[in-house]
């Protein structure tokens, strides 16, 4: 069971308080109608599914109800950082 630091509550809390939000930093296309079915399908469904460093969203569902991002190693499950939505990770696959 993961122990997750909520950057809004500034506390480590148990995984049971959170729900997983999937891969982070996927930006909704500004003009969806301008995209081909392939491009739109890519946005909808295709993911990096990283083995190792992964940037992902978490929702503090029974806490502050805020989404935030985490940089987590999907093999060791170590959470390297959590950071607020709209900010960038300091640790990336390239840097780690």
């Amino acid at each position: 069971m993961l122990l997750i630091h909520c950057p809004h509550c500034r506390e480590h809390r148990e995984e049971e308080e959170f729900s997983y939000g999937g891969e982070a930093h996927i930006v909704r296309p500004l003009e969806p109608e301008a995209l081909s079915d392939e491009e739109w399908g890519d946005y909808l469904f295709f993911r990096t599914n990283s083995r190792g460093i992964h940037h992902e969203m978490w929702y503090h569902a029974v806490g502050c109800r805020r989404y935030f991002n985490a940089t987590r190693n999907t093999v060791t499950y170590e959470i390297l950082e959590t950071y607020k939505t709209g900010t960038q990770p300091t640790i990336t696959g390239a840097s780690a």
Partner: peptide, 13 residues
């Protein structure tokens, strides 16, 4: 489990 993971293990809850 709810999260992506290659660790061949999950959470106790």
């Amino acid at each position: 489990d709810s999260y992506n993971g290659y660790g061949q293990r999950g959470s106790f809850h």
